[in-house]
């Protein structure tokens, strides 16, 4: 029985250190579309992706991926399930001891028995898709930040996964590369029928490609819906965020004492 939803998160609670990151978060990510997760910096979007990938165990709640609870999986099952997930980290996290080609080839080498020529062709196609076919012999230290992200993107999609999680794929990209990546995400989604979970702060791009958006704040989902709907939402908190207004109910500052108090007590 296949559920309509690819990811179902129920009542997720998680505390890291002193900070309560999630406090009863519930969300359902539909299969086959591009779903965006937005929210102020530090609300736990990256952490959410790690919870879905089974890397961070929640204190409470369940995370179901294709109907199977990620938190209850054994180590081996988890590693098996992750083969069908592609993930782009916020930091590119390229393997520094391998060149660009080997970085992209890595998932194919460890998870498939494809012959060397096939791997070569596939890697070149993936690198071509992100516009870095010519950079295949460079080492990660020789790449710019934006190039490194694109290599990481090529690596994330190397095995044509069912679910691809992108943690801020647009940061550090010039407008052309941004357009290419947008196109690529859409294409992967349409052509391969993959589902995408996208974390991004770039409102325009996100509104353009996302089918559905979740807005997180204070460890909960404070709004969800189609992007256009959310921008017109009556809740000022949501519409402020979706339009990028600096002033409004969403605090820009990490919780802290009053500024004046902080400045005056500095000598203490």
């Amino acid at each position: 029985m296949e559920s309509e939803y690819l990811i179902e998160i129920e009542d997720l609670c998680l505390t890291r250190g002193e900070k309560v990151v999630f406090d009863g978060l519930t969300m359902r990510v539909p299969r086959g579309g591009i779903t965006a997760v937005m929210g102020p910096s530090g609300t736990g979007k990256t952490t959410l992706l790690r919870v879905i990938g089974g890397q961070v165990r929640p204190d409470r709640g369940s995370v179901r991926l294709n109907g199977a609870d990620v938190c209850r999986m054994s180590r081996a099952e988890l590693f098996r399930a992750r083969r069908d997930i592609g993930m782009l980290f916020q930091s590119s996290a390229l393997f520094t001891d391998m060149d660009v080609f080997e970085n992209v080839a890595f998932p194919m080498r460890v998870h498939t028995d494809l012959p060397e020529d096939t791997i070569r062709d596939l890697v070149i196609m993936k690198l071509n898709a992100v516009g870095l076919r010519g950079a295949r012999d460079l080492m990660p230290s020789q790449l710019s930040g934006g190039m490194a992200r694109r290599v990481a993107l090529a690596r994330a999609i190397a095995l044509d996964p069912d679910l691809i999680m992108y943690d801020e794929p647009f940061t550090g990209q010039d407008p052309i590369a941004m357009g290419v990546i947008l196109e690529l995400i859409k294409q992967l989604n349409d052509a391969l029928g993959a589902s995408s979970l996208l974390v991004s702060h770039d409102i325009h791009e996100t509104v353009e490609i996302a089918d559905y958006v979740f807005v997180l704040a204070d460890g909960k989902v404070i709004g969800e819906g189609a992007p256009k709907e959310l921008q017109q939402h009556q809740n000022r908190r949501i519409s402020q965020f979706m339009r990028g207004d600096p002033d409004g109910p969403v605090p820009f500052h990490y919780p802290a004492d009053d500024l004046q108090y902080d400045l005056l007590s500095e000598a203490g």
Binding site: F79, R83, S91, H111
Partner: peptide, 22 residues
């Protein structure tokens, strides 16, 4: 330590490759 700091171990885990083995 560098691999851990730059999240290379972490991404490897997310790819379904156990860094303890690899």
């Amino acid at each position: 330590g560098l691999m851990k700091t730059t999240e290379q171990l972490s991404i490897m885990e997310m790819m379904g490759v156990d860094p303890l083995r690899r």
